[in-house]
Simulated assay, not measured.
Amino acid sequence: MRIKCPLCGERDRREFYYKGAAIDLARPAPDAGDVAWDDYIHNRENPAGRTKDLWQHEMGCSAWLVVERNTVTHEIYGVELAENVKRGMK
C-alpha cells in the first residue's frame, strides 16, 4: 500500500504508523459528561469498507494524517493533514 503524504509525496506504507480511527479528532469537551466520555472511549466501530484513519508519517516529516481508505481493498481515496480536518467529524 502506498500513502501520498501531503508534505513528502507518495511513500510506502512502512514509513507510516497507524494510530487508529480518525474519530479521535472528535474528542468530547472536557465537561461533556460521563455518558459522552464512556461512548468515546469504549464504543468504537470496526467497519469493513470505507474508513478515515489517523496515521503518522513516522519515517518522514512526522506529520499526522487522516487517510480515507477501504479496509477491505486497501484503496486510498484521499489523504489530508490532520490539522486541516474539521474537529467534530464522525
Rank of each mutant, 00 (worst) to 15 (best):
M1Q: 11
M1V: 14
M1H: 11
M1R: 11
I3N: 07
I3A: 06
K4E: 15
C5K: 02
P6E: 01
P6T: 05
L7R: 13
C8Y: 04
C8G: 02
C8Q: 05
C8R: 02
G9Q: 02
R11K: 12
R11I: 10
R11A: 15
R11V: 08
R13V: 10
R14A: 11
E15C: 14
F16I: 07
F16N: 07
Y17K: 14
K19T: 10
K19H: 10
G20L: 03
G20R: 01
G20F: 00
A21G: 10
A21K: 07
I23Y: 10
L25R: 06
A26N: 08
A26T: 03
A26C: 06
P28N: 03
P28K: 01
A29D: 11
P30L: 09
P30K: 06
P30Q: 05
D31G: 04
A32T: 02
A32V: 00
G33M: 00
G33N: 00
G33Q: 00
G33C: 00
V35W: 00
V35G: 00
V35R: 01
A36S: 02
A36E: 00
W37D: 02
D38P: 01
D38H: 02
Y40V: 06
I41S: 05
I41Q: 02
H42V: 09
N43I: 12
N43Y: 11
R44S: 15
P47C: 05
P47F: 03
A48P: 07
R50W: 02
T51V: 13
K52L: 13
K52M: 14
D53P: 08
L54I: 14
L54V: 14
Q56E: 14
Q56P: 01
E58R: 15
M59K: 14
G60M: 01
C61S: 08
S62F: 08
A63W: 07
A63D: 05
W64K: 14
W64D: 12
W64V: 15
L65I: 10
V66T: 08
V66W: 01
V67D: 03
E68G: 10
N70L: 09
T71R: 07
T71N: 09
T71I: 13
V72W: 03
V72H: 05
H74Y: 12
H74G: 15
E75R: 13
I76L: 10
I76F: 03
G78L: 04
E80R: 15
L81F: 09
L81T: 08
A82L: 04
E83D: 11
V85N: 09
K86M: 14
K86A: 15
R87D: 13
R87S: 13
R87I: 13
R87N: 07
G88R: 03
K90A: 11
K90E: 06
K90L: 12
